[in-house]
Nucleic acid binder design. Structure first.
Lengths: 249, 249
DNA sequence: CGTCCTTCGTTACGAGGCTTCACGTTTGTG
DNA sequence: CACAAACGTGAAGCCTCGTAACGAAGGACG
């Protein structure tokens, strides 16, 4: 920090590289511990697994909370990456495909690594303090923004023309129209409503499943129910026409 | 325990009464601490607030986990009570009213006491061990059963005749038809699917809201969006007729 | 009324985790 | 080679959980 020349150096020095690698290894080891032993993460364990002692970790993370925060930031970033990858593989005017891809990606992220999902979305973390709010909060917002921007791209194609319900209250209509000025674009209120509906349904399913509140349903049945959930979301957003139901008058 | 006569005594002795009161006070104080200081619950703090010392609490709860478990059991019981009360106030053949009452009650439970909701549904509690699974698990299941049985009563009135989607996979259909033999009744698979869809949407909304993932929406707008969510659930279960949408072909 | 026994609460204490500190050691640099 | 920065270690302090031993309160029963 003393010389401005050092600040402008773009190529990281050897020290910086090995330091970055160590940080990465610490985080990887910590995530492994979280996966195995649950939420009670012991600094000494991480260090021992790396062939070090506990105090050495404080050269890299000032605090146990900061390590958890870093894991959360990485987790949200990875989630955004996976969502983005899944959504970019869909056709830009295929709202039904978008919904399926987003829902499946969201759920798979939770299923593939329940410990990480718990870390991200199970709020009462041990020692959850102010610090986490200020570092992981924006990261969580970025994940939300990923969904939002991607959905907006689809919506701009006019694919949300016939949602099943487009009721929105006056307060929400004004907020949705104005609040997102940061991105430079306005969002139709009903589109944003659709996003929130989608998010609530998929997030709720993922939470229930990950936190073991659906243990009375077999894995296969859960898969089928999730499929039905997806189809329902496609219907309610008007991405699919309603099914021809002979019972329906 | 030595005399069988004492076991059969129905009226609790004075000691038992004061002990029960103390347990109640401990739990109340602990919940207060949870509400104020978050998840890091210190035994010494609880004791001090009660004018006692920490080891005294071990006369009433063998473990910090057992205290948390007791709080969870009470929380789920209270949630069941509130849900039951809200649902009993609805007409028995009014599915739309049932959905509104259940959703509002569920969300209000979360909003009224976010700390308790976090305790119940934010899984990664500090020191979450095997014990919690075996004590609070059934309590959580009881809450689910409350919703299920109440919904079944409504469904038995034939109100779920025209759900928007009644797709269910073969695995789920057989499970839903057979698994609930414990209650002596079978449940139509599509009804159970509707329950799960309802649960995912409402639980997801409550989680997002409680865990502050919707901080970018004002309170009023959130209320409006939740209203829209309810209406959507009413539509997808066939409780309400689809709106007359001039844009719809 | 006096004695006993159970329960309750306290002080004292040990175990274990987080975090800091002082000190050597390694490593890159001029 | 000399120097400085970063790194890692052992020792130590602090805090919390949980246990143990002891004293006090209070109901049960002669």
């Amino acid at each position: 920090m003393r010389s401005t020349a050092a600040e402008l150096e773009k190529v990281p020095s050897r020290r910086e590289r090995v330091r970055a690698a160590t940080i990465k290894e610490i985080k990887a080891t910590a995530m492994g511990m979280l996966r195995e032993h649950g939420a009670d993460l012991r600094f000494a364990d991480i260090a021992r697994e790396m062939g070090m002692t506990a105090p050495a970790l404080y050269r890299y993370f000032a605090d146990r909370d900061q390590l958890l925060s870093a894991l959360m930031v990485d987790g949200f970033a990875e989630m955004s990456t996976q969502l983005t990858a899944a959504l970019e593989a869909t056709e830009p005017d295929d709202l039904a495909g978008w919904i399926r891809a987003a829902a499946v990606s969201y759920r798979n992220f939770a299923k593939a690594d329940p410990a990480r999902f718990s870390l991200l979305f199970g709020l009462p973390n041990p020692g959850f303090g102010q610090h986490n709010q200020h570092t992981s909060g924006p990261a969580a917002g970025a994940t939300m923004a990923t969904l939002e921007q991607s959905l907006r791209a689809v919506i701009d194609k006019g694919q949300l023309a016939h949602p099943l319900i487009r009721y929105v209250g006056p307060q929400w209509a004004t907020e949705a129209g104005t609040a997102q000025a940061a991105d430079g674009a306005r969002i139709p209120a009903d589109a944003y409503q659709a996003l929130l509906h989608f998010l609530a349904a998929v997030h709720g399913f993922a939470c229930l499943e990950t936190f073991d509140h659906l243990h009375w349903i077999s894995d296969q049945a859960r898969d089928e129910l999730f499929e039905a959930q997806i189809e329902l979301l496609q219907l309610t957003t008007g991405a699919l026409p309603p099914p021809s139901d002979p019972d329906r008058p």
